[in-house]
Design a protein around this nucleic acid. Structure first.
Length: 562
RNA sequence: UGGGAUGUGGCCAAGUGGUAAGGCAUCGCCCUUUGGAGGCGACAUUCGCAGGUUCGAAUCCUGCCAUCCCAGCCA
């Protein structure tokens, strides 16, 4: 453990683990698992869980398994088991040879169920799903016992075996645990353990037609894998008595797994529900699960987020039991912080305004040296072409500029980054009064952007040489939702009514020629604009850059205030 | 009106009887060839509320209030 992590206070799960280690519980071993259901892509909320489970295992010299919780073939698919593995790896975690599936344990789980029946703790119930529901009672009223509750053990065994053999249609029978129909905890009112589903499973095919329920499969899978700390989210807190009850029925060792619940991640301006994310994909509000506006891990990857930034984020948000909504600004801060230190700078003009420098020699091009990353000298320098005609950003010129506008205006002098000081001498307009180009003069003595006489210029602009610049498609992504809480919609409308109509704007930008060979997934800072990542569909012939995040912009704040 | 949990600044989050860490956001100032980055400073007399115990309470006790979860043969 480093000095740093030592100083940092422990969160409640670390405290529990350390106490367990002190008490030599489970031989002081730490073994966690990340248990996704393969029914959707992983999102940033899963990233929190992944970082927690794999992180804890690493911190305490333990192991973390990957276990697909695939007990419901109705919703699951191999497409998802592939994407899930890719995303976990990309995040930087490794389950080594411990990739498991709950479906691998179906036989064992079935045997455990036989034990349960033999103990007289489970029975085959013939009530329909509706009847069971109607007889479960309410939180304030006890439920009614099933008429099949006292079926003899032999009969239960026989029926359960025939359920497995496929002798009955779906819904005809269900195996239920015999616990307590009057329990104030609804989950203890004779919960279903096995249901009949005549559906092909993505791994076991048609071998099974009965499938275990989550509560039965999860805890016992933990037991089979010798998991010590089974971490899950708060909504499973009320399942814990059942988790423990099931374990009590089959356990015959000193070792025992423990379920611990923590608060799931919620992010402002973001939707996290798998069902709703699926809707965004299926109804084409976005361009697939990896659309850069999606809060999926693959979406963030395509957007230009780094694994480090997401891990750092997960670390910063902490782990606790209270419901929370993390400000998305913290995520944005995490990626800026990471990219600032390691990404090359370049100049790109997204909204060009032509400037002709009258006193610069016609036809001349010179190469000027630019620093690749002021934060990291080892990243070196590059040469960029400069000539008589350049582009600057439209927003960097104002005809009637206020004093606080430190950029170009008639008669004002600014620095062109790594190039020269220029002064705007003339504004050229078309017949409609629109500015078509600017004329300027430059100071040859200021080459490199230095001021040999100590003269101060307040503004420094990025630019690109008009002739040498290359074009690229620029995709300007913004938050997908307008509201801090996208779930809050007007009467009769749903979260899709809160979608930001400007969450994607495609434009053509002008870049330094050095970017011609930029490879997919490579990342840059466009100086004074933001961080950009080459899209996976980008080619040399048609470059595509995705905006990951803008730079912080204090001018925008000043401008807004007025 | 049952059960389970949770309440510390705008958002997170430490704190576990000795007098409120840290991060994000926000606001100042400094610095700057990115209005970026960086640096410095400000930002809870108070911990859901009300009582009580104690020399001393965010921490212990009592009562109340608020929010979240639970009535799938989903996970």
């Amino acid at each position: 453990m480093t000095e740093n992590t030592k100083k940092k206070s422990l969160h409640f799960i670390q405290s529990i683990i350390e106490e367990d280690i002190r008490n030599n519980k489970n031989n002081s071993k730490v073994h966690t698992r990340f248990p996704p259901e393969p029914n959707g892509y992983l999102h940033i909320g899963h990233a929190k869980s992944i970082c927690l489970n794999f992180g804890l295992a690493k911190q305490y010299n333990g192991l973390c398994n990957l276990r697909f919780d695939d007990t419901n073939p109705v919703k699951e698919d191999v497409e998802y088991v592939d994407s899930i593995q890719e995303d976990i790896k990309w995040l930087g975690f490794d389950w080594e040879d411990r990739k498991y599936f709950a479906s691998d344990y179906f036989e064992k789980l079935y045997e455990f169920a036989i034990i349960l029946i033999k103990k007289g703790k489970a029975y085959v119930c013939e009530m329909s799903a509706d009847e069971i529901s109607a007889n479960r009672g309410t939180p304030t009223q006890p439920g009614k016992k099933s008429p099949w509750r006292n079926r003899p053990v032999e009969e239960n065994l026989n029926l359960f075996e025939r359920m497995r053999k496929g002798e009955f249609e779906e819904g005809k029978y269900v195996l239920r645990a015999k616990i307590d129909m009057a329990s104030p905890n609804m989950h203890m009112r004779d919960p279903a353990v096995y249901r009949i589903r005549n559906i092909e499973h993505h791994r076991t095919g048609n071998k099974w037609c009965i499938y275990p329920m989550y509560d039965w499969a999860h805890g016992l899978s933990d037991y089979i894998e010798k998991i010590t700390h089974s971490l899950c989210t708060l909504e499973f807190e009320v399942h814990r008595p059942l988790y423990d009850w099931f374990l009590d029925q089959v356990i015959d060792t000193e070792y025992r797994p423990r379920q611990i619940e923590f608060a799931r991640l919620n992010l402002s301006f973001t939707i996290m529900s798998k069902r709703k994310l699926l809707k965004l994909v299926e109804e084409k509000y976005v361009d697939g699960w990896d659309d850069p506006r999606m809060p999926t891990i693959s979406g963030y990857r395509r957007r230009g987020y780094t694994p480090e930034s997401i891990r750092k984020f997960a670390d910063k948000i902490g782990v606790a039991k209270r419901d929370n909504v993390i400000d998305v600004a913290l995520l944005e801060h995490s990626i800026r912080e990471d990219l600032n230190k390691k990404v090359k700078r370049t100049m790109a003009v997204l909204n060009p305004l032509k400037i002709v420098i009258d006193n610069y020699p016609e036809g001349q091009t010179e190469e000027l040296e630019a620093i690749n990353n002021p934060e990291d000298e080892s990243m070196g320098t590059r040469m960029i072409p400069f000539s008589k005609t350049i582009y600057i950003e439209k927003e960097d010129f104002m005809e009637n500029a206020p004093k606080k506008f430190f950029r170009l205006a008639p008669g004002r002098e600014v620095r062109l980054r790594y190039a020269y000081f220029i002064t705007c001498t003339k504004v050229v307009k078309d017949e409609n009064g629109n500015i078509t180009e600017l004329r300027a003069s430059y100071d040859p003595a200021s080459k490199g952007g230095k001021s040999p006489d100590g003269r101060k210029v307040k503004g420094t602009l990025h630019w690109v040489s008009a002739h040498e610049a290359i074009k690229a498609e620029i995709r300007l992504y913004d938050r997908l939702f307008l509201n801090e809480n996208p779930e809050v919609a007007e009467e009769g409308k749903d979260f899709t009514s809160n979608i930001n109509p400007h969450s994607l704007e495609k434009i053509t930008g002008y870049l330094e020629p050095g970017l011609q060979n930029a490879q997919p997934e490579s990342k840059y800072q466009f100086e004074r604009i933001g961080y950009f990542c080459v899209d996976k569909d980008s080619t040399k012939e048609h470059l595509i850059f995705n905006r990951t995040i803008t730079l912080r912009d204090s001018w925008a704040k000043i401008d807004k205030k007025k």
